[in-house]
């Protein structure tokens, strides 16, 4: 943990793009007899927003778990900034479809969790949570409990909590999956803005083609289970794309169509495997 912490400031002053922030080398993973990953070779550059796209249940989430150090590959290896990941990787922040807020804590105190864990003073925590509440637009709900919030607000709260401990890399596993289209768009815009401002790297798992094209700089298409890299696509869309009007951009439509074409054979194969199982 400590040597990773030491690495971080050096990396900020001297951005070394030659060392990938996340790298999988021939990574395979099996759970018992079921193989979920097969020989995944992939490099993520620092500051990149990468979508991992594939049929549901193909094993994309396993890649996030490997990056977070929650799982170890059965074969091959996973690396973070050149170092092999062997345990919990605290440089990453994880957000899933379930927001995992603590129901007995108010919004403010939920956001403060990582700060408390890191031993921040009361005053600093207060100041930082104020900033974050403002950033995600939850100032008015600081003292509400998660059970009083709508789904979108809970997501915002979870997002603020991740930002509180400021991990270098965000691991997002269909974070907006359960939201309605408009809310999802708003949160996607917020996410992209925050990521662009802070220069964080993002691994974003989705099975939504439109979302992948809208958010990512690069998209990795996976095969049906066991997941292996099928295609890696760079999107030819501007950095400062406007997500609200993006859908009218012919280039966006082209990219979506291209991605769909690449994905459909895998969908069929996954369906033959028995869908979600």
């Amino acid at each position: 943990m400590q040597n990773i912490a030491k690495l971080a400031p050096a990396a900020e002053t001297l951005p070394d793009t030659s060392v990938p922030i996340v790298e999988f080398r021939n990574a395979s993973k099996s759970f018992g007899a079921m193989q979920v990953l097969q020989d995944v070779d992939l490099k993520i550059r620092p500051g990149e927003f990468v979508c991992l796209l594939g049929p549901s249940g193909c094993g994309k989430s396993t890649l996030l778990n490997l990056t977070a150090g929650l799982l170890q590959p059965s074969k091959g290896s996973a690396h973070y900034r050149g170092e092999k990941i062997t345990g919990i990787n605290v440089k990453t922040g994880y957000m899933t479809q379930n927001d995992h807020l603590l129901p007995w804590r108010t919004v403010r105190r939920n956001i403060a969790v990582p700060l408390e864990l890191a031993g921040w003073s009361k005053a600093d925590t207060r100041r930082r949570t104020d900033e974050l509440l403002k950033k995600v637009g939850l100032e008015a709900f600081a003292d509400s409990y998660p059970s009083q919030l709508s789904g979108g607000m809970r997501k915002r709260c979870a997002l603020a909590r991740i930002l509180a401990y400021d991990p270098e890399t965000l691991l997002l596993d269909e974070p907006f999956g359960a939201l309605d289209a408009q809310l999802r768009l708003l949160l996607q815009i917020e996410l992209r803005n925050i990521v662009r401002e802070s220069g964080k790297s993002v691994l974003f798992v989705t099975h939504d083609v439109d979302e992948a094209v809208a958010l990512a700089d690069r998209c990795v298409v996976f095969s049906a289970r066991p997941a292996s890299v099928r295609h890696v696509i760079n999107f030819d869309l501007p950095e400062d794309r406007d997500l609200k009007t993006l859908r009218y951009n012919p280039k966006y439509q082209e990219e979506c169509a291209r991605l769909w074409k690449l994905l459909t054979p895998e969908l069929d194969r996954q369906a033959a495997l028995g869908g979600k199982s």
């Binding site: 929650l70 990787n89 605290v90 922040g93 994880y94 990582p114 890191a118």
Partner: peptide
Amino acid sequence: VSREQLAIMRLMGA
């Protein structure tokens, strides 16, 4: 307490 919840806390440095 789900294992996911604990994993998320561990990633926060708990």
